[in-house]
């Protein structure tokens, strides 16, 4: 709920946004690590997939904590949002596997 003062946004932040910079650098490192995994042809496909998934999950957490204010605000909202996101991710991933295997 807002009042007349929070309507427009001022850049009233103080200090250097370390959190954002670290988050950005970490995200870039994790992304390029994944790219390197694939393009270096150094691992077996199974290993590549495992490593990429791990890197992706780590990056998701980096973003949630560094950019997306996961520790702030009302718990109900945060849980609902993450829950819905997890539900969609499950539908997309499980659905795709089910569909694209042409098994059943």
């Amino acid at each position: 709920m807002s009042n007349e003062h929070t309507q427009a946004h001022a850049s009233e932040h103080t200090g250097f946004p370390w959190k954002h910079v670290i988050g950005l650098v970490l995200s870039l490192i994790l992304t390029f690590a994944a790219l390197w995994c694939v393009t270096s042809f150094a691992f077996s496909p199974a290993l590549i997939v495992t490593v990429i998934v791990i890197l992706a999950v780590v990056q998701a957490f980096v973003q949630l904590f560094m950019f997306m204010h996961i520790t702030e605000g009302s718990k109900v909202w945060q849980i609902t949002a993450i829950g819905f996101g997890a539900f969609i991710a499950f539908c997309v991933v499980a659905g795709t596997l089910w569909i694209m295997l042409f098994a059943l």
Partner: peptide, 12 residues
């Protein structure tokens, strides 16, 4: 439902 005819199978 946009690609039923792709043939993913009866279950899908």
């Amino acid at each position: 439902h946009h690609f039923f005819t792709m043939g993913a199978g009866p279950g899908v």
